[in-house]
Amino acid sequence: MENSPLLEAALPAEKGSSLWRDAWHRLQKNKMALLGLGVMVTMCIAALLTPWITVYGYEEQNLLLGASPPSAEHWLGTDTLGRDLLTRILYGSRISLAVGFIATAVALLIGVIYGTVAGYMGGRVDAAMMRLVDILYALPFMIFIILLMVIFGRNILLLFLAIGAVEWLTMARIVRGQVQSLRQQEFVEAAVSIGLGPWAIIRRHLIPNTLGPVIVYTTLTIPNVMLLESFLSFLGLGIQPPQSSWGLLISYGVETMEEYPWLLIFPGLALSITLFALNFLGDGLRDALDPRAAKD
């Protein structure tokens, strides 16, 4: 067969699915999503390089200085113990971003697989699986986490797992609802009649079509998880001072809001910027992954 050069260019490469490649092309045209992606990448790099780019240590106190407003030496000011706030926000970002991403990834992984299987199997399997979700929903979250901490001890990894293990429930419900309606569609029947096995159908036909709501929910979960960590830390179950995280910095900032507003403003700003960046990126991803979304 003879192909024109134009057609050769249009032909798909032999590897990878078209959806993801096309999604990347579409994402590149979305300025806000690229900005969001840029901000997130910058934050992650800064978090990784923190020990090498900071001048002060995160526990380095200067009691003589006390809480001082932003200045040339301390760009974002210092806290009541005279610790540099910028340094503490940067160190805090390591914890917060890690918790945010890892715990959400855990939730995503469990939730999507569990929800897809339940929705795809249907019938009694689905009923049993979703009742389990209901039971876990009813279990008080605090007791669950405290039990985990008591049994396994305080461990930062455990914190990731514990939060992820709780957050997956809603994800599973969202995905299961999506899959239930998708399963009725003829293209799934067509896949069965081609001879595809259940896993191939779930992977190729069901999960890609649930991505829209999943991505939106994921971008909402990440900031949620970051705040959850601060709540646990506040109760003494998460990370311990002098380590810090954004959530912890914010909750300390709230206490001294009237005297030293910068202690609340800057950590709050860091969290807000992350949230905005994630939302833009999430919306961009959702549109990019939906071939039906507006074409320019």
Partner: peptide, 12 residues
């Protein structure tokens, strides 16, 4: 409209 996966190209 329902028998084709909306996220797969003709090629896929």
């Amino acid at each position: 409209y329902a028998s084709l996966n909306p996220r797969m190209t003709v090629f896929d």
